[in-house]
């Protein structure tokens, strides 16, 4: 049986390539049909903010990649509820909010974890 991997994405979408590169690991894992989870935490939750205008900061839109998660078979997408609240973000429709106890349990469920 394949080992499961949780990717924890902690960087804001427009702070450099980190958010995109974390997502690329997830999409590549999905393409190989591996059991992959994605947790947005700290500034990473900004990736879930609605109405982003990538063009305003002369960047490529990352949200299309996020929408591709389902197509790649990645359905286990989570967001740290504390990080969302700290930044005044509403609960996103595309990720399940988890409190810190639930995050501890989530990390325990996965064989491997990559934090970027």
């Amino acid at each position: 049986m394949s080992k499961s991997l949780l990717v924890i994405s902690r960087q804001a979408p427009w702070s450099g390539p980190s958010a995109r590169e974390a997502l690329d690991i997830v999409l590549a894992g999905g393409a190989f049909d591996l059991p992959i989870g994605l947790l947005f935490m700290d500034d990473g939750v900004f990736q879930l903010a609605p109405h982003q205008d990538a063009k305003a900061v002369q960047q490529k839109d990352l949200s299309a990649n996020l929408q591709a998660l389902g197509l790649f078979g990645v359905d286990d997408v989570f967001a740290c509820s504390h990080s969302l609240a700290e930044r005044g973000l509403a609960t996103p429709g595309s990720a399940e909010p988890l409190d810190s106890d639930a995050i501890t349990q989530l990390i325990d469920r996965y064989d491997q974890v990559i934090t970027l």
């Binding site: 080992k3 991997l5 690991i25 590549a28 894992g29 393409a31 190989f32 591996l34 491997q112 990559i114």
Partner: peptide, 17 residues
């Protein structure tokens, strides 16, 4: 490519980052 990361993680007992 990134497939090599996943392949290594699958083959190993531990992935250390």
């Amino acid at each position: 490519g990134l497939g090599q990361l996943h392949d290594a993680a699958q083959a190993a007992d531990r992935l250390i980052c």
